[in-house]
Design a protein around this nucleic acid. Sequence first.
DNA 1: TTTCTTACA
DNA 2: TGTAAGTA
Length: 124
Amino acid sequence: MRMKEMARRSGVHERSLRYYEQQGLLSPERLPSGYREYSEADLETVRRIRCLLTAGLSTAVIAQVLPCIRDDDGRLAPTCPNLVGQLRTERERMTREIDALRTSRSLLDTVLDAAPRDVLSRAG
DNA sequence: TTTCTTACA
DNA sequence: TGTAAGTA
Protein backbone atom coordinates (compact mmCIF):
# COMPACT_ATOMS: atom_id res chain seq x y z
CA MET A 1 0.00 0.00 0.00
CA ARG A 2 1.12 3.55 -0.53
CA MET A 3 1.48 6.46 1.82
CA LYS A 4 -2.10 7.64 1.92
CA GLU A 5 -3.57 4.24 2.70
CA MET A 6 -0.87 3.53 5.27
CA ALA A 7 -1.65 6.79 7.02
CA ARG A 8 -5.35 5.99 7.01
CA ARG A 9 -4.96 2.42 8.19
CA SER A 10 -2.37 3.13 10.86
CA GLY A 11 -3.91 6.35 12.05
CA VAL A 12 -0.47 7.96 11.85
CA HIS A 13 0.00 11.14 9.81
CA GLU A 14 2.05 10.95 6.64
CA ARG A 15 4.45 13.42 8.16
CA SER A 16 5.07 11.10 11.09
CA LEU A 17 5.50 8.04 8.90
CA ARG A 18 8.27 9.82 7.00
CA TYR A 19 9.76 10.88 10.29
CA TYR A 20 9.78 7.30 11.62
CA GLU A 21 11.56 6.21 8.47
CA GLN A 22 14.08 9.01 8.81
CA GLN A 23 14.80 7.82 12.34
CA GLY A 24 15.44 4.29 11.06
CA LEU A 25 12.30 2.78 12.57
CA LEU A 26 10.72 1.84 9.30
CA SER A 27 12.04 0.93 5.85
CA PRO A 28 9.28 0.46 3.30
CA GLU A 29 10.06 -0.67 -0.24
CA ARG A 30 10.39 1.92 -2.96
CA LEU A 31 8.54 1.82 -6.23
CA PRO A 32 10.42 2.79 -9.41
CA SER A 33 8.58 6.09 -9.09
CA GLY A 34 10.25 6.66 -5.75
CA TYR A 35 6.94 6.26 -3.92
CA ARG A 36 6.99 4.23 -0.73
CA GLU A 37 5.33 0.80 -0.80
CA TYR A 38 4.28 -0.34 2.68
CA SER A 39 3.70 -3.99 3.57
CA GLU A 40 1.35 -5.44 6.17
CA ALA A 41 4.45 -6.05 8.27
CA ASP A 42 5.18 -2.34 8.15
CA LEU A 43 1.70 -1.71 9.48
CA GLU A 44 2.44 -3.97 12.43
CA THR A 45 5.72 -2.18 12.98
CA VAL A 46 3.95 1.16 13.10
CA ARG A 47 1.55 -0.20 15.71
CA ARG A 48 4.52 -1.28 17.80
CA ILE A 49 6.22 2.07 17.34
CA ARG A 50 3.11 3.87 18.56
CA CYS A 51 2.91 1.57 21.54
CA LEU A 52 6.53 2.20 22.46
CA LEU A 53 6.22 5.96 21.95
CA THR A 54 3.23 5.92 24.28
CA ALA A 55 5.43 4.09 26.76
CA GLY A 56 7.61 7.18 26.72
CA LEU A 57 10.57 5.80 24.79
CA SER A 58 12.51 7.99 22.37
CA THR A 59 12.80 7.11 18.71
CA ALA A 60 16.49 6.36 19.27
CA VAL A 61 15.66 3.77 21.92
CA ILE A 62 12.82 2.36 19.88
CA ALA A 63 15.17 1.79 16.95
CA GLN A 64 17.19 -0.53 19.20
CA VAL A 65 14.18 -2.11 20.80
CA LEU A 66 12.19 -3.01 17.67
CA PRO A 67 14.35 -5.91 16.42
CA CYS A 68 14.40 -7.34 19.93
CA ILE A 69 10.72 -7.55 20.66
CA ARG A 70 7.95 -10.09 20.22
CA ASP A 71 4.28 -9.39 19.73
CA ASP A 72 1.90 -11.64 21.66
CA ASP A 73 -1.50 -10.70 20.30
CA GLY A 74 -0.81 -7.02 20.71
CA ARG A 75 1.22 -7.32 23.87
CA LEU A 76 4.90 -6.49 23.38
CA ALA A 77 7.46 -8.66 25.07
CA PRO A 78 11.27 -8.33 25.06
CA THR A 79 13.16 -11.27 23.55
CA CYS A 80 16.74 -10.22 24.31
CA PRO A 81 18.30 -10.29 27.78
CA ASN A 82 20.16 -7.03 27.27
CA LEU A 83 16.92 -5.33 26.24
CA VAL A 84 15.43 -5.95 29.66
CA GLY A 85 18.31 -4.06 31.23
CA GLN A 86 17.95 -1.22 28.79
CA LEU A 87 14.24 -0.92 29.47
CA ARG A 88 14.89 -0.86 33.19
CA THR A 89 17.35 1.96 32.62
CA GLU A 90 14.64 3.83 30.70
CA ARG A 91 12.26 3.27 33.56
CA GLU A 92 14.76 4.78 35.99
CA ARG A 93 15.12 7.78 33.72
CA MET A 94 11.36 8.23 33.77
CA THR A 95 11.33 8.02 37.54
CA ARG A 96 13.91 10.80 37.71
CA GLU A 97 11.82 12.91 35.34
CA ILE A 98 8.74 12.35 37.48
CA ASP A 99 10.67 13.40 40.58
CA ALA A 100 11.91 16.51 38.82
CA LEU A 101 8.35 17.41 37.80
CA ARG A 102 7.12 16.89 41.36
CA THR A 103 9.76 19.33 42.53
CA SER A 104 8.76 21.85 39.86
CA ARG A 105 5.10 21.56 40.80
CA SER A 106 5.91 21.99 44.46
CA LEU A 107 7.85 25.18 43.74
CA LEU A 108 4.98 26.46 41.63
CA ASP A 109 2.56 25.72 44.47
CA THR A 110 4.70 27.83 46.75
CA VAL A 111 4.44 30.75 44.35
CA LEU A 112 0.68 30.31 43.96
CA ASP A 113 0.18 30.11 47.71
CA ALA A 114 1.80 33.51 48.04
CA ALA A 115 -0.79 35.22 45.85
CA PRO A 116 -2.79 37.93 47.70
CA ARG A 117 -6.60 37.57 47.98
CA ASP A 118 -7.36 40.53 45.70
CA VAL A 119 -5.23 38.99 42.99
CA LEU A 120 -6.88 35.62 43.42
CA SER A 121 -10.35 37.14 43.16
CA ARG A 122 -9.50 38.59 39.78
CA ALA A 123 -7.78 35.45 38.50
CA GLY A 124 -9.44 32.88 36.27
C1' DT B 1 -3.50 13.73 -8.41
C1' DT B 2 -0.42 11.78 -5.37
C1' DT B 3 3.91 11.61 -3.46
C1' DC B 4 8.58 13.04 -3.21
C1' DT B 5 12.38 16.02 -0.81
C1' DT B 6 13.91 20.00 1.42
C1' DA B 7 13.47 23.76 4.32
C1' DC B 8 11.63 27.04 7.59
C1' DA B 9 8.72 28.52 11.66
C1' DT C 1 4.90 19.13 14.01
C1' DG C 2 2.71 21.80 10.23
C1' DT C 3 3.16 23.79 6.02
C1' DA C 4 4.83 25.41 1.54
C1' DA C 5 7.50 25.07 -2.76
C1' DG C 6 8.67 22.78 -6.81
C1' DT C 7 9.09 17.92 -8.93
C1' DA C 8 8.35 13.42 -11.16
